[in-house]
């Protein structure tokens, strides 16, 4: 049974339609991968699902817990249980990661400054953090740093996964989480994600390259070209793309990253 259902989603950016009818059902416990060449609509899909104001919905719906989330603000989607790991995490100066994580966690729990029983206690916060930091091979030193400010590519992506681990979403969208990462970082990130896999979490991995799928094995793979799914299947779809790239859809791009020297 689908816990998260995208139905005929159409979306545009600056008046140009990018998503031309995307449908996808995710059940909790499943890992889906959406693969596609540049310009196929992968970023538009992730941003539209989370409600970025720069992306206009032209049609379709996204059903989660009995609601069409397209009508909700991004914060309401997050509180409902959605999470987006950003491809390009945003720098916010002057706010520490610790403060950010605590505020986000309190918001997720519905703490609005009044009902103290919903507020995360310092002790609870510390013990949650400690475990997750270890898995991601991170240490305390990044907690007083400003949100993503001066973070290396690897640190940013690990910080995204740390947020995911803390917020415990039911539907997580990982947008190009492997891009810009060295192989060690990919392993740490994948280890953390795999730890979270389970019957309470559905995952949507959005990626250009097959590499990350070696570490986070998908149950389903969907190929997105020009705003539509052109092929859906099991993990074997990724293997096929690894060999032939996107050439069968007229795109001369491989699905393997350039070797990092």
């Amino acid at each position: 049974m689908a816990d998260f259902e995208i139905k005929d989603l159409r979306a545009s950016v600056e008046g140009r339609q990018i998503l031309k009818g995307v449908s996808l059902s995710i059940a909790k416990g499943e890992v889906h991968a959406v693969m596609g060449p540049n310009g196929s609509g992968k970023s538009t899909l992730s941003h539209t699902l989370m409600g970025h104001p720069g992306y206009a919905v032209d049609g379709g719906e996204v059903l989660f817990k009995g609601q069409n989330v397209l009508a909700l603000e991004p914060d309401a989607r997050a509180r409902l249980g959605m999470f987006l790991a950003f491809q390009y995490p945003v720098v916010v100066p002057g706010i520490s990661m610790a403060n950010f994580l605590r505020t986000a966690l309190n918001s997720k729990r519905g703490y609005d400054g009044k009902d103290k029983s919903k507020q995360v206690t310092p002790k609870e916060f510390r013990s949650m953090l400690k475990g997750e930091l270890e898995v991601l091979h991170m240490d305390d030193s990044f907690l007083p740093r400003y949100i993503n400010d001066g973070f290396s590519g690897g640190e940013k992506k690990r910080a995204e996964i740390l947020q995911m681990a803390m917020l415990k979403p039911e539907i997580a969208i990982l947008d190009e989480t492997d891009s810009g990462l060295d192989i060690d970082s990919i392993k740490f990130v994948a280890e953390a994600v795999n730890r979270m896999r389970g019957p309470e979490l559905g995952i949507l991995i959005i990626t250009h390259y097959t590499r990350v799928l070696e570490f986070i094995k998908p149950d389903f793979v969907h190929v997105l070209v020009d705003g539509k799914f052109v092929l859906s299947g099991g993990p074997e779809v990724a293997d096929r793309l690894e060999k032939t790239g996107y050439s069968e859809w007229g795109k001369e791009e491989t699905a393997q990253p350039q070797e990092v020297a």
């Binding site: 989370m50 409600g51 970025h52 104001p53 720069g54 603000e73 991004p74 914060d75 989607r77 997050a78 509180r79 999470f83 987006l84 950003f86 995490p89 945003v90 720098v91 916010v92 100066p93 002057g94 706010i95 403060n99 950010f100 505020t103 986000a104 918001s107 997720k108 400003y146 949100i147 947020q163 917020l167």
Partner: peptide, 30 residues
């Protein structure tokens, strides 16, 4: 206040008003 910063904070469940306040407080943090 950038849309990107707001979207990022809100995507973590933080309500718009609180996210804006965070950004302003971050701005004057020095």
């Amino acid at each position: 206040v950038s849309d990107e910063q707001l979207f990022y904070l809100m995507s973590r469940g933080i309500a718009r008003a609180e996210a804006e306040t965070m950004i302003v407080n971050g701005f004057i943090e020095p």
